[in-house]
């Protein structure tokens, strides 16, 4: 995903702990997020006006469109 793109979360295919933790932060299916940084290391997303860094492995399990 290119940086600065605003995308919608389609599905999160990760362990239930991670899914629930992300949901508490407002990252869940149907939510719009902006990708702030996505080159190496964790991916930073902009959700609800906050910046959240998500480990690369987990970020790969978030399907967006």
């Amino acid at each position: 995903m290119p940086e600065n793109a605003v995308v919608t979360v389609k599905a999160i295919k990760a362990g239930f702990k991670a899914i629930r933790f992300l949901a508490d932060l407002g990252i869940h299916e149907g939510e719009k997020i902006r990708i702030v940084k996505n080159d190496i290391g964790p991916v930073i997303v902009d959700v609800k006006g906050t910046r959240v860094a998500i480990g690369r492995g987990l970020a790969g399990k978030i399907e967006v469109s």
Partner: peptide, 10 residues
């Protein structure tokens, strides 16, 4: 165990 990856607010 179920590793909870980095989720960190900046």
């Amino acid at each position: 165990d179920d590793p909870l990856p980095l989720i960190l607010e900046l």
